[in-house]
């Protein structure tokens, strides 16, 4: 009974909202607000087959490459900077300055520097997403447990072993936080780099529909971008749970205690 109630609470409002949209817009004659059934129809027509492999897939690929590169670079630099106090003092103002740039302004500069190819877009994603990862990693590395640090020193745990079991492990909750903050940025940068500098890709295609006044197709594109955002955030949560299971377990244990 309790479970049923909870399930009802969870799906109730979404179902009501979608139903309201569906029936409220049914038979809509408004050019800009087509009915939901028209949009769903356009969705099926537009985004299957060649369109997916030629426009959507390359976009997602660039997103993935750029995002992963940003995480790797951010963690590597973060460990380096977080470990040495003087390096940190030296670079902190520069990093704070670079982080303060709204990442989309990089798109015009990147176009000037390397044209409108894949490289530009990946570059923009990396440069925009690296900051949250980097700064959080620095904090995480800095805030590692003193006792564990001393224990490692006592047992002469050094090098890769120390990096893996002490430094990265201690920083991993922060790294994951940074990676979570970077994800929506990556999507934003993927879309607008394609809107500003591309002749293919998801952002370009959706904007093309808008320019051609193919309104149902445009709406279906908006819907697709939304779905991509939702799916990626769900995937991230699954990955987080498997990576940080130990941490959440520890926290929960501490709370009970």
């Amino acid at each position: 009974m309790r479970f049923l109630l909870r399930a009802l609470l969870a799906v109730g409002l979404p179902v009501v909202l979608v139903a309201a949209w569906w029936f409220g817009s049914a038979g809509s004659q408004d050019f800009y607000w087509p009915s939901l059934s028209t949009i769903v129809d356009a969705f099926g027509r537009t985004w299957t087959g060649a369109m997916f492999t030629e426009q959507v897939f390359p976009s997602l690929w660039r997103l993935l490459v750029g995002y992963l590169l940003a995480v790797v670079v951010g963690v590597a630099l973060g460990v380096l900077i977080g470990t040495f106090r003087s390096v940190r003092s030296l670079l902190e103002p520069v990093l704070e300055f670079l982080r303060a740039f709204p990442p989309p302004v990089l798109v015009p500069a990147a176009i000037l520097l390397s044209g409108i190819g894949d490289r530009t877009k990946i570059l923009v994603i990396v440069f925009g997403c690296v900051w949250p990862v980097l700064l959080n990693t620095i904090e995480g590395v800095r805030g590692r447990d003193e006792v564990l640090s001393d224990t490692c020193r006592t047992y002469r745990v050094t090098g890769l072993l120390r990096l893996r079991h002490l430094v990265l492990r201690a920083a991993s909750p922060q790294i994951v936080t940074g990676a979570r903050q970077a994800l929506p940025l990556a999507i934003i940068l993927m879309v607008i780099s394609e809107m500003m500098a591309a002749n293919e890709g998801l952002g370009f295609t959706v904007l093309q529909f808008q320019r051609g006044f193919q309104i149902p197709e445009m709406w279906s594109g908006v819907l697709l971008l939304g779905v991509i955002g939702i799916v990626l955030s769900l995937l991230f949560r699954v990955a987080e749970r498997s990576l940080l299971g130990w941490y959440h377990g520890q926290r929960a244990g501490q709370r009970e205690w």
């Binding site: 929506p184 934003i188 607008i192 809107m195 971008l225 955002g229």
Partner: peptide, 16 residues
């Protein structure tokens, strides 16, 4: 569901 929808997805919509 609504929160992860990237705001840039709304760009074509608001232009129209």
């Amino acid at each position: 569901f609504l929160r992860p929808i990237p705001s840039v997805a709304l760009i074509p919509l608001v232009i129209v």
